[in-house]
Each structure stands twice: as C-alpha cells, then as structure tokens.
C-alpha cells in the first residue's frame, strides 16, 4: 500500500517542479487518476483476501457438516463473553478507523491522529484478549490435530473444531497484527503532516483493509462461538 504513497524517484524521472504535487507519480496524469487506480488496486487486493479466507470457511463448513456433534461439544470450551467483547472491540475499531479516514479527508490532522491511535489501541486490546483465550486453550490442551490432549473430550473429533478454530483465528490474528503495523506507519506519517484533503490515499486504503478484517470476524464470531 505504501507503494502508492510515495512518488518514484530516480529512473530518469526528472520532474520539473512546476505544479506537480510531490505525491503524484510520474506515470499518472492527475491526482484523481492516481487515487482511483490505487483504490481499484486495493479492492482487488481485498478480493484476494476474501478468497483466501473462503478456503478456511469452506473447510469449516465441510468438517462441521460431517461432525456436527463434535463441533457443538467443542465450542462449549470457548468463552462466549470474551468472543462477544472482541466482536464489539473490532466493530468500534472499525468505526474509529472510518472516522480517521474522514478526518484525514477533511484535513483535521489532530482528529485523524486521535482516531488512528484509538484504532491501534483497540486492535491491541483484541489481540490481548485473543492471547488470554489462546493461553487458556493451550493450558487445557484444546489444540489442533495431534497436539490435542484434552482428557475430557465427550465426542471424538473435537480436535477438528480446534484445528479450524486455531487456523481461522490465527490467520485472522495475523491480519490484525499486519493492520496494526500499517496503522502505526500511518500515525508516523500523519505526525509528519503528510496527509491532507489533497492526499490521504494510504489512510483510505488502510481503512478498507481494516474493515475487511472486521468483516471476516463478523462471520467468525457466530461460527466459532455460537454454534448450536
């Protein structure tokens, strides 16, 4: 994403200084064109993310349809309240993210920073709660596949649920961490005053990404915590 942010130097691309904003890359005619291209590129990237997760969801659906009883039994080991709190945390973080984008678009740098910090913090809260959930599972031996060592399993095949649980939340968690990394970078650039109503593409694109990660969780929450 930062590819879009910085003009390309070198490569014989000497630009004369006249009326050429520094964020505009040499192969675009207008800022508008560059913005639209970046945005389309981001949506295409989101498509790849959705298809990536679709493999995990399909795996979940198939294993769940084969072993419904095991999945119901196994999901009782998850803490529904923590899942709910995490859902709310992510939803709020999505809200603060979209507010950050809007503030950037309106050149309200202070508000942008405040919202970005909040979003980053909420991402952190999500991961901390996730950490406590994980360590609880690890302690109980509720682990994927061959690592599963929980003695009180009522139905054989519960390890399948935990295979899916750890893979799905794991891949999702990696996306949260990546998103937090990008938001940290945005905070740094906003402090430098790089974003304004003229140019805030990176904030906008990161917002899209962050919402997608939230959107995935919207599906993960009922699948993993609320199976009935």
């Amino acid at each position: 994403m930062s590819d879009i942010a910085i003009p390309v130097g070198g490569q014989g691309g000497e630009h004369s200084a006249h009326s050429h904003p520094k964020f505009l890359q040499h192969h675009f005619h207008t800022a508008q064109q560059q913005f639209e291209a970046s945005k389309l590129g981001m949506w295409l990237f989101l498509v790849t993310e959705i298809l990536l997760f679709s493999g995990l969801f399909l795996g979940y659906f198939i294993l769940q349809s084969k072993h419904p009883q095991a999945f119901i039994e196994a999901h009782h080991h998850l803490d529904r309240n923590l899942g709910l709190i995490n859902t709310l945390v992510l939803l709020v973080s999505s809200f603060t993210m979209v507010m950050a984008v809007q503030s950037a678009a309106l050149s309200k740098t202070k508000a942008t920073l405040a919202f970005l910090y909040t979003t980053f913090t909420l991402g952190g809260v999500f991961m901390v709660i996730k950490y406590f959930e994980y360590s609880h599972k690890i302690h109980d031996g509720l682990l994927p596949g061959s690592l599963f060592s929980y003695a009180g399993a009522a139905v054989p095949g519960e390890y399948l649920f935990f295979s899916m649980y750890f893979m799905m939340t794991g891949v999702h968690g990696i996306h949260i961490i990546a998103g937090m990394g990008v938001i940290a970078y945005l905070i740094y650039r906003t402090h430098k005053g790089d974003y304004s109503s003229e140019y805030y593409t990176p904030v906008d694109l990161t917002g899209l990404y962050w919402h997608l990660v939230d959107l995935i969780w919207i599906y993960l929450f009922p699948l993993l915590y609320l199976v009935s």
């Binding site: 493999g55 995990l56 072993h67 682990l143 596949g145 390890y159 399948l160 893979m167």
Partner: peptide, 30 residues
Amino acid sequence: VLATPVIGITMVLLLMERIFQVGIFDANLG
C-alpha cells in the same frame, strides 16, 4: 486475482496437516 489466493490457503492447510495433523484432509482423522 480470483484463483491464486485459494492455492495459498490450500498450501497453508496442507502444511498444517503435515505439521499438526489438523485432520481436514485426512479421512483417518475425520
């Protein structure tokens, strides 16, 4: 754009199957 991500997750699942026997591709494990 549309197909490549699926091979990505497939390869991840296969790797997990190899390391942890997560069971998704193994009839023996359900």
